[in-house]
Design a protein around this nucleic acid. Structure first.
Lengths: 193, 193
DNA sequence: AATTTACAGACGACCGGTCATATAGTGCAA
DNA sequence: TTGCACTATATGACCGGTCGTCTGTAAATT
């Protein structure tokens, strides 16, 4: 990775931290470069606009998460539905200690979908990808008999992924992990018995 | 209702429309007064700050929704779980035609919870209220035998309300009602058989 | 020497909020 | 009913500050 790309990633990582808690409109270019300890003028060497930064940020976050999820999801030593639980939990870093920020992609979705089409489309794609991963896992669980819910894996995956995103959102309001526990407690009853 | 209160409500209604699509930080005082066709100086006659406006806006939206929900929820001629479905659907106005805006309270939650404690607490309270309504309905359904899921009404209500909020969020990303349909299709399988 | 990258400073626009002034509304005495 | 003092509302110019972006030039790299 070139020196330029390293610095770009560094700027992204620092900026994501700010934008995850303050949102798109609540984060200024100044905030981003301050967090990265980089002069303001340099910002436009790496990103052609604030929107461009946000799009790259969504890419980076989603890529990190998907990489992490993939390694967990393909471990055939663990039952599919147990992996699903892990999958959800892995999508929020340090969900017990640091309840700030929530899901960066979910945040962008709520704040920007109605005002920035490029961000909306990128977010939609990322969510579609993650939903597909859930669906594959559900299919696997159906094969081995641990999933008995008659609703199609496709619909159920949509439902569960969205439910999880809603749970992360609720965590932002409560600032505690209680909603997460309610989710995990309820999950088995949805798989059927 | 006094003349003053009428104008305040008018300003609120016009402003909520803007803020529901552009968010808190994406909406300026100028945007609000423009939407209401009122001079900027007048804003501060009715609200002491932008934050004050947002808090009043959340109140108004939640009050409207709760009033609407209450009338639907208490209709004993309809089965509890059917009412629950109506309850969810009533919380989003014109969910098929106008997918813009989504859930105002959900939007505020995601955007502001980490940066404005007053808004966060207000949002938390509203969500708690709505969850309680779901819980009551689930209890009623359990009485008449239509709800067989062994998970407590409390946990299940939390789960379902958050799932619904997540579904509304997903609708913002897709700009179509498909996620809503997936939610409604999946719902019966959660009640048990 | 030529090209790319780094960055300070400045740009006009707009932000949330204030204020002096103008106007409208109210209660009361005559 | 009228005239008057007083309070409440109306209003847009204006405040200091920050916004996202751009430009000119210095430094680094090729």
């Amino acid at each position: 990775m070139s020196k330029r790309e390293l610095k770009k990633d560094f700027l992204l990582e620092a900026g994501i931290k700010v934008m995850a808690t303050c949102g798109y409109n609540g984060t200024s270019i100044q905030d981003i470069v301050d967090a990265a300890k980089v002069p303001k003028g340099s910002f436009y060497t790496y990103f052609k606009s604030k929107e461009d930064f946000a799009l790259a940020a969504i890419d980076m976050v989603a890529e990190d998460r998907i990489k992490l999820s993939k390694s967990l999801l393909n471990d055939r030593n663990i039952a599919p539905l147990a992996r699903l639980k892990t999958f959800f939990e892995s999508s929020i870093p340090g969900c017990d200690s640091n309840v700030n920020g929530g899901c960066f992609i979910g945040n962008m979705c709520q704040e920007m979908s109605d005002s920035n089409e490029a961000i909306r489309l990128k977010v939609r794609q990322m969510m579609r990808n993650k939903t597909q991963m859930v669906e594959d896992l559900l299919d696997e669980a159906r094969m081995d008999g641990s999933l008995k819910n008659p609703v199609s894996s496709n619909l159920l995956a949509e439902f569960l992924f969205n439910a999880w995103e809603g749970t992360l959102m609720r965590m932002k309001a409560t600032k505690c992990r209680e909603p997460l526990d309610a989710f995990v407690s309820t999950l088995p009853s949805i798989f059927g018995n």
